[in-house]
Nucleic acid binder design. Structure first.
Lengths: 236, 236
DNA sequence: TCAAAAGTGTTCGATATACACCCATGC
DNA sequence: GCATGGGTGTATATCGAACACTTTTGA
């Protein structure tokens, strides 16, 4: 007997990281406005004639209003039973169409400035930043996807350290950058050595502006200079 | 109008690297025994109730006879026109079934000792190691997949350097290891510094055996000690 | 004795780590 | 004036890069 080949729907799911003073957060969407707990990763089935990268860009655009977000595909999740829980099947029936018997997904990682105003004309009526340590139980295998995304963000930043600036405001203090690195690598980093390292980066430029109304010595702001970074990379 | 969601077949394609004295090679399969040029990456549609990782393992087992090959998923290729050339559609009709209008694939990277005897009871009547610099034009987007696999193998080995030993015989010389590194990174590496680095690795153990019948000073053999490597990694 | 590859040591500079003190500000 | 976080400098260790000569063997 000839084996039966899978014929299936395909979705994308996006893990969008944001950073605030308390650490890393992930952008989740609420399916049911009346259920405070019902959060999941933003995602969508992909259309006919649509590449997965385009689908991820579409989801992120609807979510944030940003046309071309920095994103990175990191894994296809295709376990046959990833969409086999009855409540997940029910939701697929309602949201998309009945009889979706299997669904494989391609997971994307993206980075977003957390202070950016999010789009609210999208199909996602409610979105929220959820601290990484407080991610609730989510449908499908979304918890596993988030877990793997953490390894992936480290790999990504090791490969291209300039990615971290996607997570910071345009003007940031060295202390913020320091906390961000500590959050990503989950370890303490000596602030004095960190200072030295950052100020040695030709693409992190010192601004004249300093903090105001803080009850301690005001910190200086810095910005990331993309052109200087390109020049720097070219010399590597 | 409701958008139409993709409903599609899914395949896996495997880029299997091997290494000989002339450099890196990739294992390709011949579709048509009478056509010397008709090479492609080994792959398969995935079955109902089969995960993509399992499908890749299945393909690799049929190809090599090895039950659990080291493998790594590295990207989903889903361009809508990746299977739109008429000769590719014709082949899909014949090999699988008619009217496969779209096909997305999940690409895997794997490493294999090139001197290993390959399985020849598989559906792949003819397989051959093809030097990386002589890869022919292949169907679908297989050439692009190979191209991206090269970046991926570097990332993989940076992340876990012990992977390189999957590409070498059980007993190898430092010179072989050196040539392997040079092939992967496509640059010259000072042999004296390299020697120092390798002999400092507690998990590369020196054997008593040396080369025979070589017309120059005989090189010493070394082997990779997995247990020592695990201990070493645990202390990191 | 020659060709061909194996094997060995030293120096230097760059980078990472460890560590301690003074500075500016609001309360 | 004190609590809070910002900012600087020095000493040491570690790692990688550059670099030249001797050894062994078969032909």
């Amino acid at each position: 007997m000839k084996p039966r080949f899978i014929h299936t729907y395909v979705s994308v799911d996006c893990v969008v990281f944001g950073f605030d003073d308390d650490g890393l957060n992930i952008l989740l969407v609420r399916r049911d406005e009346n259920n405070q707990k019902d959060l999941k990763l933003p995602g969508s089935l992909i259309y006919d004639e649509e590449d997965v990268d385009d689908a991820a860009n579409r989801v992120l655009f609807e979510l944030t209003g940003i046309k071309k977000m920095t994103l990175r595909q990191f894994r296809c999740f295709a376990s046959p039973d990833r969409a086999s829980k009855s409540e997940d099947i029910k939701w697929l029936d309602k949201e998309y169409q009945p009889n979706i018997n299997r669904l494989i997904t391609v997971a994307y990682l993206s980075l977003c400035k957390i202070d950016r105003k999010l789009n609210n004309v999208s199909k996602y009526k409610q979105t929220e930043w959820c601290p990484l340590r407080e991610i609730p139980k989510m449908p499908f295998d979304h918890n596993q996807i988030v877990k793997e995304s953490l390894n992936e963000i480290r790999r990504w930043i090791e490969h291209d350290p300039s990615m971290v600036f996607e997570l910071l405001p345009n003007k940031f203090t060295i202390s913020q950058l320091h906390r961000l690195y500590e959050a990503i690598y989950e370890k303490d980093i000596d602030i004095r050595n960190f200072h030295k390292k950052v100020t040695a980066m030709p693409y992190v430029v010192r601004l004249e502006e300093i903090q105001k109304n803080v009850s301690h010595r005001a910190a200086r702001f810095y910005k990331f200079d993309k052109k200087a970074h390109n020049k720097y990379k070219a010399n590597m």
